[in-house]
Write a protein that binds this DNA or RNA. Structure first.
Lengths: 140, 140
DNA sequence: GTGGCTGCAAAATGTTTGCACGGAT
DNA sequence: ATCCGTGCAAACATTTTGCAGCCAC
């Protein structure tokens, strides 16, 4: 299957690459649509999938909120999210090769090929907000 | 807010605890409904959320497929999923305290409180299937 | 000219929510 | 007698898909 270069695909790529952070598919769509209102959401979704399959952009699926996030970085690194506001941050591991070797599947015969760590934490802004309120958690 | 004990909640708890694996909310619902057809899906979802908030069952949010999985284990461990069939397996880390200390947030001021590793791999069955077909991937 | 890509709308999926009622406390 | 938890249906959010026409090759 031959692959074509279209305006929409180029735009999708450029928007991810110039985004400072970890946008959701909808973030990217809204940015593009604000300049090119005729683009379709389905096209953005399709192109984001294609681009991440081609390895040109990163894809982060692991945040529970049900949203997929994309990433202009494609080098090896990990991610954390703020338990209060949900923002996603990059996290580096000082010794990134080791933790795969330390892993033992409980189920016999399962072969590990890769792994990524999802950290939870709290960002500076939310920490200061919580300190001000004197509350650790608002929940319940 | 006072919390009541209901038949539905007890059933939800017992079904998770006796499930050998990592069921989705819908898995649990279908099992209960096969015996007690009048239970509502919303109730099962609500009770699964409650139980995991109370720390009585585990919750795994990080599998990209958009489904939340539950876990009868609540001790510290990690998970892997088969890239071919999606099955979830338990994975132990030989030195589970270390990797948090090796992590460095790129964004200034972000404080890490916990982390879980999502491994990708391939289970025995799928490995043998792929060998038989002589194909590494069917995709594209 | 061909067929992959697009836009649109509808469908699919997994989960949450509003509301009236019944049951646990 | 409260008022929390339930069942039901509708709403929600994100993503995928079917299809006719268009445009990059």
């Amino acid at each position: 299957m031959e692959r074509r270069n279209t305006m929409q695909k180029a735009l999708t790529y450029e928007t991810v690459m110039s985004y400072n952070g970890h946008p959701s598919a909808d973030d990217i769509y809204r940015i593009i649509a604000s300049e090119h209102s005729s683009i379709s959401k389905a096209t953005v979704y399709r192109n984001l999938s294609l681009l991440s399959e081609e390895g040109k952009i990163g894809r982060i699926e692991a945040f529970g909120n049900g949203e997929v996030h994309y990433d202009h970085r494609i080098d090896r690194h990990h991610h954390g999210y703020c338990r209060s506001c949900g923002r996603v941050v990059d996290i580096e591991l000082s010794d990134d090769n080791d933790f795969l070797g330390m892993a033992t599947p409980v189920e016999d015969g399962f072969v590990i090929t890769s792994g990524e760590i999802i950290f939870e934490g709290i960002c500076r802004e939310c920490r200061e907000k919580e300190k001000k309120n004197g509350t650790e958690r608002i929940k319940n």
